Simulated scan of single mutants.
Amino acid sequence: MKTAGVFGRSGRSRWRKDRLLILGYHGIAQYDEQQWDPALFISAELFESRLRFLKAKGFNILPLDAALRHLRAGTLPERSVSLTFDDGYVDFYRIAYPILKIHKVSATVYLTTYYSEKNLPIPGITAAYMVWMSPHFVGPLKTLPAFGSIDLRHATARRQVSRLMGQSFTDERTMAPPRKHELLEALADELGFDLSEVRARRLMHLMSVDEVGDIARDGIDIQLHSHRHWVPEDEHLVRREILENRERIEAITQRPAVHFCYPSGVHYPELLDWLRRLNVESATTCESGLAAPTDDPLMLPRFLDHSRVSQTEFEAWATGALRAFPHRSAYTPPPRGSKSQPAATP
Rank of each mutant, 00 (worst) to 15 (best):
G148Q: 09
R79V: 01
L237I: 05
A292D: 09
L304I: 12
L23T: 02
H205F: 15
E287R: 11
R302M: 03
H26C: 07
T285S: 07
A316Y: 05
A318C: 11
P301S: 07
A73S: 14
Q34N: 12
T319E: 05
P269E: 09
P334M: 06
H181R: 09
Y268F: 15
M133F: 09
E190P: 07
R276K: 15
I61M: 08
W36G: 02
I95H: 02
F137D: 03
V209F: 06
H267V: 05
M175E: 11
V280Y: 02
S338I: 12
E287S: 11
R72I: 04
L144E: 11
T174P: 04
R248M: 13
A73F: 04
L62D: 05
S282W: 00
P334F: 07
H26F: 07
I222Y: 02
F169H: 04
H306G: 11
H103I: 09
G24H: 06
D210P: 05
R72N: 10
L144P: 07
V81H: 06
Q34W: 12
G289T: 01
G24Q: 11
T284S: 07
D218G: 09
R240T: 10
R163P: 04
V280P: 00
S162N: 01
R202M: 10
G8H: 14
T294E: 15
L120V: 00
V280S: 01
D91Y: 02
P123R: 02
P346V: 14
A107R: 03
